[in-house]
């Protein structure tokens, strides 16, 4: 998606706020941005609520496992015991419809899904997976991209040419199609992937995490490399070279600290992007695999129930919008704080 890329590029290239203590300065600016603070608050709240999923699950659990099917279960609505899956009516009695929202926090608040699971509890567990994948893949992506960008930007010449062209190739693939191709391949290997002695099972949350991180590497690489190039030509780096500093020292103690702010500006926007991508892949059934759930898988399951039980897909969608919106607002705030001269601003 060029949209993402450009957003990233146009923010990334301009962030060289140099002050006496730029971080303290930035923090002070961020604290003054009430909208960004509200977004941060909302984000923290969402994370805490999702982390607390087991507590809520304990409250609504039918037989100790909210993530397992409860097709034969019952619940209480208005003091009466009713089945979670309700048989069709008429003479033919075709079909089984899950119970709808009861709006009773302890009994199927948002109703049940296709196999009788409590949607409200799933929502919290799904949030854990979505947030975990989003945050981890964004971090992984930023770390890998930064390392590659440091190497390319610092050594330049052939190294730079090769690495940049490699990134161009990844960049050239349609984002979702590349992710789908990779996921299809990895999921077909029912035994998962073996990277050295590290084993990732196909149904692990790490499969989508790694895929998503991989496809966005060029999108972070480009702005960071630009930044590395501009920092590498600065006087203080040349001074360090003159002093005979090793390449390692040059990269990690001279250049890296000066590109970190670019990466930090990108991070919230990348998390927003990765969360959206995770939900899309899960919707297409190549993301999070059962028994794990994520907001995307719940929306996908809800598709069948859209007209009779719309809350199954409405609720996780609202959660995604809230989370991503908070991340985007926060991202704008962080950028404004770290780079007050940035021209692309919300306010």
């Amino acid at each position: 998606m060029a949209a993402v890329a450009e957003q990233v590029t146009s923010t990334g290239l301009r962030s060289a706020a140099v002050g006496r203590n730029p971080w303290a300065l930035a923090w002070r600016r961020l604290r003054r941005n009430r909208l960004a603070l509200a977004a941060l608050g909302l984000l923290l709240l969402l994370i805490v609520v999702c982390l607390a999923a087991p507590l809520y699950a304990h409250d609504v659990a039918h037989d100790g496992n909210v993530l397992g099917p409860n097709l034969n279960g019952t619940t209480i609505v208005g003091g009466k015991v009713v089945p979670v899956m309700q048989e069709g009516g008429g003479i033919l009695k075709l079909g089984e419809t899950p119970i709808g929202p009861t709006w009773d926090l302890h009994h199927y608040f948002l109703g049940a899904d296709n196999i009788g699971r409590d949607v409200a509890a799933l929502l919290l567990y799904g949030g854990r997976a979505s947030l975990q994948i989003g945050i981890c893949s964004a971090l992984l992506c930023c770390i890998v991209a930064t390392i590659v960008a440091l190497i390319a930007g610092f050594f330049g010449g052939l190294t730079d040419a090769i690495l940049s062209r490699l990134m161009d190739v990844i960049w050239a693939f349609p984002v979702y199609l590349l992710a789908i191709s990779l996921a299809t391949e990895l999921l077909t290997h029912s035994n998962g992937i073996q990277i050295g002695f590290l084993h990732v099972s196909a149904t692990s949350l790490w499969t989508p995490t790694v895929i998503i991180a991989f496809i966005y590497v060029p999108y972070v690489y480009r702005p960071v490399r630009g930044q590395v190039l501009s920092v590498a030509s600065k006087e203080f780096v040349e001074a360090a070279i003159a002093q005979g500093a090793s390449n390692f020292r040059l990269i990690f103690s001279e250049i890296l600290p000066n590109v970190v702010s670019t990466v930090i500006v990108l991070l919230p926007l990348m998390i927003a992007t990765t969360i959206l991508t995770e939900s899309a892949l899960s919707y297409l059934s190549v993301g999070v695999q059962p028994p794990n759930v994520s907001w995307g898988t719940i929306i996908s399951d809800g598709q069948d129930l859209l007209y009779t039980r719309p809350w199954v897909s409405l609720a996780p969608g609202i959660m995604i919008v809230l989370t991503v919106l908070a991340l985007n607002v926060l991202g704008d705030g962080v950028r404004d704080a770290l780079d007050p001269r940035a021209k692309l601003r919300v306010r």
């Binding site: 069709g88 008429g90 033919l92 075709l94 069948d304 129930l305 009779t308």
Partner: peptide, 20 residues
């Protein structure tokens, strides 16, 4: 047929049209 619609087929209106 999605479970959504299965329940509509239970209506007496379609009784003569559904065969199981």
């Amino acid at each position: 047929i999605p479970s959504d619609q299965l329940s509509t087929l239970n209506s007496p209106q379609y009784a003569g049209q559904v065969h199981v």
